[in-house]
Write a protein that binds this DNA or RNA. Structure first.
Lengths: 335, 335
DNA sequence: CTGAAAGCGCTTACAG
DNA sequence: CTGAAAGCGCTTACAG
């Protein structure tokens, strides 16, 4: 591989001058610049990213810290990861995947080794242990999630409260007076999951305001359990025939159960839900829904992280991505 | 941040000696080693990975080059990515995500910038343009896929031919004489997809050997199309009541269609399929199946890549991961 | 067994 | 506008 020295020799200039055209931080006369560019092309030279990183103390890499919760649903994860990578590349950054089960340890490790310029934390919980090493070191980071106490760290998330309001309003506007609230497994709320909790709170409050009675239906983990729970609920004559769903596993399983019970939407059952776009893309989910907009979240996170790298002392920010209602006539008007 | 110089000063030794204990490549007396380790702990020192990379010409990072085909199904992608990251970490490597649409360009870029020590190419096609820059540069790489001409590059994949044989045998052993072969969209075969083609060839050959008549049912892209195609096929009295499926989208949609048509497995319909474990985990898929074993593939790929980095001149290898049949009584014996 | 020196490939003040 | 020099934080022959 050619080095900057080879290019300098080929072009008959010093290494500093080559560096100047490489970084673009100094003026170089068009003639010498042309000679240097010719040499670069001839030698197929490309900056050694490690050497540049050492000289500039910038790795041009962001770490994405993945976190799983077995109650959650993973098809959307790939969409997020690709979206982060794409958004980062557009700004000159690469993305490193951090998947170890102990996320706090992963954070400590990459910060200590200076492996990345900043971190994106997926799926942040209230009391998330990954925040400690970040706030202690003051390392640039963005949380995807909306914890009560972000510990002075930037955060971005879908506005789950607004999403809940949209869905509740959609039902109330159509004249519905009650609905099942198909929820995540209880342990997800207890784990400090911020999106589950925020959606729930807003939904309950808005429903109270709008005179919509919500009957909670918690759905346990696991396909068989999801199916059984939905089936039981849909067969219960005491429960409303309208569903407000915040649980991707339940959304994905619902059509199976509809088939089991010979129910049609919206004739027999009205449904609205909040789910990942990935689900909508893969299945015939003709429910009015709020999608979770992974690309918009990723783009915002990367933008905030770049800002943070540029301005380490700026005050922490929180950004909420506006959800949009995607109407698909799964709700009928009630008199 | 502390540097190796700080540690040396604190321990009262030279930087070389600190480096010796860091790399573990030289003997250091237990006493000095202890002093150095104490200094490291006290200063919370950690090797700067960029500096080490520059000195050793090893980034300890692998690049994973993702490729999408719209006819394919992505829920399994996240499983693969996490599996690669976990397998790499176990061997001291980090994983960088390479997602740009032009994969060949991504490969060229990271090779030229020396950003990674090796590359893992996902979803390799026959005639895949990403192979060219790799075979030209001789960069360490492993293909996930099994192209006709791997261009001297190591490759690993599930043994799709063996998977086809398992499934055909499973039907033939149960006395079935004919089956629908629910396939990927035609454009996937034409695109050079190696797994689709290898499964198809083996299935056809084995079926001929075993006296099983296979009626091909190509399934187009898109949830609505998948559903409509399956529904039409299952309603056609001329078609067999036995399904051999190699198409994740069709597997995922099948229960919806069974519901539509009031069909039960195995009473009305017998089914075997090859699909990703992720699908099986998320849905109630009680079909006898061969799973695609992402973890085993990832582990093998990382192992091969580490070997390649250690022995750049060794002859190229190809590894096929043995599939396993997971029986779930979706097939009834025929007399 | 330990240390002084050179080098990895860049960038960046600082002179000129 | 261009170049010589120092430095980023390590590792690795090579002496001693």
């Amino acid at each position: 591989m050619a080095t900057i020295g080879d290019v300098a020799r080929e072009a008959g200039v010093s290494r500093s001058t080559v560096s100047s055209v490489l970084t673009g931080r100094k003026f170089v006369t068009p003639e010498t610049r042309a000679r240097i560019e010719a040499a670069i092309a001839k030698l197929e030279y490309s900056v050694n990213s490690g050497a540049r990183a050492l000289a500039t103390s910038r790795t041009m890499t962001f770490g994405v810290v993945v976190r799983f919760h077995e109650a959650e649903f993973s098809p959307a994860l790939a969409t997020y990861l690709v979206a982060f990578s794409d958004a980062a590349r557009a700004r000159g950054y690469a993305v490193m995947l951090l998947t170890e089960p102990d996320g706090a340890e992963a954070v400590r490790r990459v910060i200590a080794a200076r492996q990345v310029d900043g971190l994106i934390l997926l799926n942040v919980l209230d009391g998330d242990p990954r925040l400690e090493p970040i706030s202690r070191s003051g390392y640039p980071a963005v949380l995807v999630g909306n914890p009560e106490d972000p510990r002075g760290i930037d955060a971005v998330d879908l506005d789950f409260a607004a999403a809940a309001n949209l869905l509740v309003d959609h039902l109330a506007d159509a004249g519905h007076r009650d609905a099942m609230f198909v929820r995540w497994p209880e342990e997800l709320y207890e784990s400090g999951s911020t999106y589950a909790t925020r959606f729930e709170r807003a939904a309950l409050r808005r429903a109270a305001d709008r005179g919509l009675r919500l009957v909670p239906v918690p759905v346990p983990v696991g396909p068989e359990q999801v199916r059984a729970t939905l089936r039981t609920a849909l067969q219960d004559p005491a429960l409303p025939r309208t569903l407000l769903i915040h649980n991707d596993a339940a959304v994905a399983m619902l059509p199976f159960v509809l088939g089991d019970l010979r129910l049609e939407v919206p004739a027999d059952l009205n449904v609205v839900s909040l789910h990942s776009a990935e689900l909508a893309r893969l299945y015939v989910l003709s429910f009015s829904a709020v999608e979770s907009r992974p690309e918009a979240v990723a783009e915002a996170a990367v933008e905030m992280l770049c800002d943070r790298v540029a301005h380490p002392q700026a005050p922490a920010r929180k950004r909420l991505i506006e959800p949009r209602l995607d109407q698909r006539s799964s709700v009928q008007a009630r008199p």
